[in-house]
Design a protein around this nucleic acid. Structure first.
Lengths: 153, 153
DNA sequence: AAAGATTGAGATGTCAATCTTA
DNA sequence: TAAGATTGACATCTCAATCTTT
């Protein structure tokens, strides 16, 4: 068999992205579950609602925000609704749509979760960076996001 | 209900990380599946083997590299073995262990996949960055990874 | 037609229990 | 005892089909 060819640096860079992302995700979710009883995705959904004007979002919007398919977000919302953290509401203007609203219980849950998540983020993530480095990272991510948006969708 | 409090910038930064990662992952995997017939994780497993000295790895090592549990990597290797891309081998020195080796077919598959993956990476990812920015990103990621390693694990 | 949402089928991950070997 | 690997039970995602409303 021939030896492996020289591999493009972009491959290594993407590998680094995946590795760091996976490990950060694992640790942050560990803290979140252990200390606040919420999985990463439940927390993210609640946070999106928490920060939305009116504290409500259409099901599909919510799904896009967290990168879920329509079926996936439908089932996720089922489970969170059963847990009492949010509720489905009819949309007065469009009877096809479902509006998801955070409940008082959900509101309390995000607030508790934020109290452990912010220190967790600093401990595992931003604490390793200087203020300047954090700004640099944000700038790079915004550049990438802008390119992805202009490129398609 | 009280208004949402000021949210720590680290929360937003992490949200940006997740968003960009998810979208990049989606596009890269789309190209990989569409143009080379390999999912992201299959490609990553093959690439790890491809670049390993001897083109083989212990099952557990491989699992750690791709952030999979022992059960998960066992089943993934099952499927890839059935597809003829790799094979299990006994470890002569430790009869508990299983060594995974890439097959000739697997070797050919990675090489084909690299030919579409590298342009795909440039199109969706590194093409949006200047050379300097790419270096910056790599530096930041290495800093984060080093902190994660020293912190635990 | 197309958009929003739901459902069932299928794919694939984790966790815990278990077996073998060190 | 512990490490390496496998398995079954379970959770939860995507995809495709379907229903309702626009």
């Amino acid at each position: 068999v021939e030896p492996p060819p020289q591999i493009d640096p972009a491959v290594t860079l993407w590998g680094l992205v995946m590795e760091v992302h996976a490990e950060l995700n694992r640790r942050l979710e560990g803290d979140l579950i252990g200390l606040a009883g919420l999985s990463n995705i439940w927390f993210e959904v609640l946070l999106r609602l928490f920060r939305s004007p009116g504290r409500r979002l259409r099901l599909t919007q919510l799904g896009e925000m967290v990168s879920f398919s329509s079926g996936g977000i439908s089932k996720l919302v089922d489970r969170m609704e059963r847990a009492g953290l949010l509720e489905r509401t009819a949309d007065a203007n469009d009877r096809r749509a479902t509006v998801v609203r955070i409940t008082a219980e959900g509101d309390a849950a995000v607030r508790r979760a934020l109290e452990v998540h912010v220190p967790s983020l600093h401990r595992h993530f931003t604490g390793a960076l200087t203020h300047t480095q954090a700004r640099q990272l944000e700038e790079l991510l915004r550049t990438l996001r802008a390119a992805l948006q202009s490129g398609r969708g």
